[in-house]
């Protein structure tokens, strides 16, 4: 059941934290194996960066990069102009974009589904700043069903400092309920 997820963000937006949140949520299951890693190297604020999560019911031995994805999550819509976020999406996969626009605006593909969520809006309302990683994490959890909402909320507590728990759990939940299928 290997699921491979690629997170697109800009340096400083917490894209790798989102990858880790999903990994942490997966690690809460006795029979899941998980792996999360960033696009390695020096990080520059604002530069396009990647995060990756693998979840499987078998031990994960693969140490190569993720080249084909079940889910691609885009934290910052402006990345679509500079990065080919569609690269490597598997047939039947999902592209999830933080955008005010409807999925149709991003073109249809017979190979994968497109979902959108205005995560910046959720983040501004709940967190008071445009940090969209936890909302997009909630959205991915809803769309993928890879882990439960309960696991996702526990992962927030196990990953973020305590003062950030309440608001970020609310961001996860709000996004989750908007995109729950």
């Amino acid at each position: 059941m290997l699921k491979e997820i690629r997170w697109h963000g800009r340096g400083g937006q917490g894209g790798f934290t989102a990858a880790r949140l999903l990994g942490m949520a997966g690690s809460l299951y006795d029979d899941y194996y998980v792996q999360a890693f960033p696009s390695f190297g020096p990080e520059r604020r604002g530069a396009p960066v990647l995060g990756f999560t693998r979840i499987d019911t078998q031990p994960i031995h693969d140490r190569s990069k993720v080249y084909s994805c079940d889910y691609v999550v885009v934290l910052d819509e402006s990345l679509l102009d500079v990065v080919d976020v569609r690269e490597g999406i598997k047939k039947g996969g999902v592209l999830l974009i933080n955008s005010e626009r409807r999925p149709e605006a991003f073109g249809a593909s017979p190979d994968y589904e497109v979902f959108t969520l205005w995560a910046t809006g959720i983040a501004l309302e709940i967190l008071g700043q445009p940090v969209t990683n936890t909302a997009m994490f909630g959205a991915l959890v809803a769309v993928s069903g890879a882990v439960s909402l309960e696991a996702a909320l526990t992962a927030v507590e196990l990953t973020l400092p305590q003062e950030l728990w309440e608001k970020n759990k609310k961001a996860v939940e709000t996004a989750y309920h908007q995109l729950r299928r």
Partner: peptide, 10 residues
């Protein structure tokens, strides 16, 4: 380096 040191796993 990185491939192992910076990768999170159980």
């Amino acid at each position: 380096g990185f491939v192992l040191t910076h990768t999170y796993e159980v």
